[in-house]
């Protein structure tokens, strides 16, 4: 089984080496690719100097477009699984091997690392938990399946799901929407308990002002998934 770790990076020259080292140490033998989303700092040079496997986008595409580039790369290079890994210190590389094992053994299309199965580690704020519960309910109504952590960014996609992502991937906030889409197409999705840390660097992409947009956009997107049937 060949697995690829996709690291989308925009101006993360401060943390990128740490992220790659974390993967090399805690997920040995697993390939990675950095998608440098046209950073304005010295990302590109750092990647060259340290001989990191990097795709440099000529124009800034935003997170969705950058991650999709990674999935396209994974698909072209024949990877069986791909996982998005953010460089902000929230996710731990030690789970990659575990998720890979579950994906392979149970022949799944997607494995999600959920914070809300064992309720350990950083649990996010109350407001966010309410939002997440709402999406859990919405997805349950539409697909009949329960996903405890539909907003989790720690997700590993199998070959089918990678192919699906190469064709269509939301521009922003893709998590709940793509899980709903996978479930409505009867793909096999499973959650495993993980712990996440509070982010070390940077701020969440979801500021209070953006949270209204987030809720509306994602709700609408999930409803559209139901309409489309995919």
């Amino acid at each position: 089984m060949k697995t690829l770790v996709i690291i989308p990076a925009f101006n993360e020259s401060a943390s990128i080496l740490k992220t790659v080292a974390d993967i090399k140490e805690n997920a040995p033998g697993i390939d990675y690719v950095i998608i440098n989303d046209c950073s304005t700092d010295n990302m590109k040079q750092i990647c060259i100097d340290n001989n990191l496997n990097t795709i440099n986008l000529p124009v800034n595409l935003g997170i969705g477009g950058a991650v999709q580039t990674g999935y396209k790369y994974a698909f072209e290079k024949g990877y069986d699984a791909a996982i998005q890994f953010d460089g902000d210190g929230q996710h731990e590389a030690k789970y990659i091997k575990l998720m890979e094992e579950v994906l392979e053994k149970e022949e799944l299309d997607m494995v999600i690392g959920s914070r809300f199965i064992e309720h350990e580690g950083f649990q996010s704020t109350i407001m966010r938990q309410v939002g997440i519960k709402f999406f859990t309910g919405l997805i349950k109504v539409i697909t009949g399946k329960k996903v405890t952590d539909p907003t989790s960014g720690m997700r590993m996609a199998g070959r089918n799901m990678i192919e699906m992502f190469t064709k269509r991937y939301p521009k922003d906030y893709p998590e709940p929407e793509t899980v709903a889409s996978a479930l409505i197409q009867k793909m096999k999705v499973k959650e495993i308990p993980v712990e996440m840390r509070e982010r070390e660097e940077g701020v969440s992409s979801i500021s209070p002002k953006k949270s209204i947009y987030y809720m509306l956009k994602v709700t609408l997107a999930i409803l559209l998934v139901a309409l489309r049937g995919r």
């Binding site: 998608i35 990097t54 795709i55 440099n56 986008l57 000529p58 124009v59 595409l61 477009g65 999709q68 580039t69 396209k72 790369y73 072209e76």
Partner: peptide
């Protein structure tokens, strides 16, 4: 369309 071209360009350049 632009997004697809940009992605393809990135992959090709690599």
């Amino acid at each position: 369309k632009q997004k697809q071209v940009i992605q393809e360009l990135g992959l090709l350049r690599k």
